[in-house]
Simulated assay, not measured.
Amino acid sequence: MPRNQQIVLDNRPRGAAVLGNFRLVVTDTPALAEGQVLVRHHYLSLDPYMRGRMNEGPSYAAAQALGEVMIGGTVGEVVESRNPQYAVGDKVLGMGGWQEYSVIDGKAPGALRKLGAGPFPLSYYLGAVGMPGVTAWYGLVKIIAPKAGDSVVVSAATGAVGSAFAALARARGCRVVGIAGGAEKCRYAVQELGFDACIDHQRYGNEGKALAQALGQACPQGIDGCFENVGGWILDAVMLRMNAFGRIALCGLIAGYDGAPQPLSNPALLLVKRMRIEGFIVSEHLEVWPEALKELGALAGSGRLRPRETIAQGLAAAPEAFLGLLQGRNFGKQLVQLI
Rank of each mutant, 00 (worst) to 15 (best):
G297E: 12
V336L: 12
H42P: 02
I179Q: 08
H41F: 13
E291R: 06
L24H: 04
N330P: 09
D10P: 01
A298P: 01
D200Q: 11
K147V: 05
K185T: 02
F165R: 00
A298T: 00
L264V: 05
A145H: 07
L140D: 13
A180K: 15
I199F: 14
P58G: 09
Q334Y: 11
F227S: 15
A31F: 04
V230P: 15
L122V: 01
E100K: 08
G182M: 06
I281D: 02
Y124C: 01
G301W: 00
L24K: 03
R247L: 04
R329N: 13
G216L: 01
V134G: 10
A136H: 06
G324V: 07
P319H: 00
M275I: 13
V18G: 02
L269F: 04
L323F: 11
G231S: 15
D196V: 08
D150I: 13
D258S: 11
A255D: 06
L9F: 07
E320H: 05
A128F: 07
G57N: 00
G110T: 03
V78S: 03
R170G: 00
P146I: 05
N83Y: 04
R23C: 04
W233V: 13
S163T: 12
G216I: 01
R172E: 02
A108F: 03
Q262C: 04
S283E: 09
P58V: 07
C186M: 09
A17S: 05
V161W: 01
G279L: 06
L326W: 10
D105L: 00
V282N: 05
A255Q: 02
G130F: 08
Q85F: 05
Q5G: 06
G118W: 05
A16M: 05
E287S: 07
A108I: 00
G231C: 15
F322Q: 01
P109R: 06
Y86N: 02
L325Y: 13
A166Y: 04
E228I: 11
P109V: 05
V75A: 08
A108Y: 00
A156I: 14
A212S: 14
E77L: 10
V92E: 11
K294W: 14
M54P: 09
V39Y: 12
M54E: 09
V25P: 00
A148S: 08
G216D: 02
G94A: 10
C226T: 11
L296S: 14
I248F: 00
V177I: 14
K209E: 14
E320Q: 12
Q313R: 14
P30D: 06
K142M: 04
E100H: 09
Y125I: 00
Y125A: 08
G232M: 07
T27Q: 09
G297S: 13
L66M: 10
P13L: 03
A210H: 06
A312V: 08
G116A: 15
A33C: 10
A160E: 07
S265C: 08
A87F: 10
L112T: 11
Y60G: 03
E295F: 14
P13Q: 02
L112S: 12
